[in-house]
Nucleic acid binder design. Structure first.
Lengths: 159, 159
DNA sequence: CACAAATTATTGGTATACGAAATATTCGTG
DNA sequence: CACGAATATTTCGTATACCAATAATTTGTG
């Protein structure tokens, strides 16, 4: 067996973490699968849809502002915007007086696309959620929020 | 900042999904960050640790068996095993009578590594979890389990 | 004004993560 | 026994996702 030589006073934390890690992996895989489905049928992925929607909602945005909204690294967003621009769903423009900034702007094609594409919500999710009561859904949201708050939040932490 | 989607019925499912997607993104990012930390300090990543631990726990495994345990695509696991094998933490062997299968086997170096490496649990997680009561932790586990079951893989579904 | 420091976005390198195609081997059926 | 179907793994191409380094520009300070 595994006698952890570690000095952790709370012995049950590790199996808890492993359990949650595996379940989160299952969830991530489902998102990934749906992303592939969208890509095949609508030539777009979930991260791309999310970025495009944010640009649409919050008007012309700098790339840096977008990265903060979607919790992604600037280099990641740079690549996503590359692909969105290649499809002419949005465009990079240099309108700011600060010439370091680029602004992301919807194109007509992009606007039309957002009205055409179905809701980016997997059928399974809609079905599954409908089986929960309001208070159960509240509890799920609470739990995910707690985990995000606990682990998340940016700035200087190594672990 | 974000209003939690207070839902009911069917019309509010989309904001609920978007909300959860964003929070899960935050969680995934934290995992990613910790994975980078492990890589820098111990030359291994979270997916690699998870695969190595499974091979250790369940004895010699075929690659296919491992993919089912960790909920990853076979091509993904193939790459992870490549990197673990390059560091000589495990090895591919062809001992089965079925010569299509390869078995994954711990090496002495791999065994030693697992006793040396600290628990693969981020400090933030341990700290954060200690602030919850047992029933709160139960609720978090329940919620993540529900989401995983709801979205998770039951074979061939497109969405 | 000059020039270092800070800011913004891109580029390069590595590690997931997937599906599809290729490869190797075994199994099933005539 | 032959040969197509099924199975196990690897390879290839693409899309995230990160950090570090780079490039371009602006800001701050002497």
């Amino acid at each position: 067996m595994n006698e952890t030589p570690r000095q952790n006073g709370t012995g049950m934390v590790e199996p808890l973490f492993i359990h949650l890690t595996k379940r989160l992996r299952v969830i991530a895989r489902a998102f990934n699968k749906y992303s592939k489905y969208l890509q095949e049928h609508h030539r777009i992925t979930i991260p791309q849809v999310i970025c495009l929607r944010e640009v649409h909602e919050h008007g012309p945005l700098t790339l840096g502002a977008l990265t903060r909204i979607v919790s992604l690294n600037n280099s990641t967003v740079s690549g996503i915007v590359d692909r969105l621009e290649k499809q002419e769903l949005l465009q990079r423009v240099r309108t700011s007086s600060d010439r370091r900034q680029i602004h992301l702007q919807m194109t007509d094609k992009g606007l039309h696309f957002l009205t055409t594409i179905p809701t980016p919500v997997p059928e399974r999710f809609i079905e599954g959620m409908s089986r929960f009561s309001d208070s159960e859904i509240d509890r799920i949201v609470w739990a995910v929020d707690q985990l995000a708050e606990l682990l998340g939040d940016e700035e200087h932490q190594q672990q």
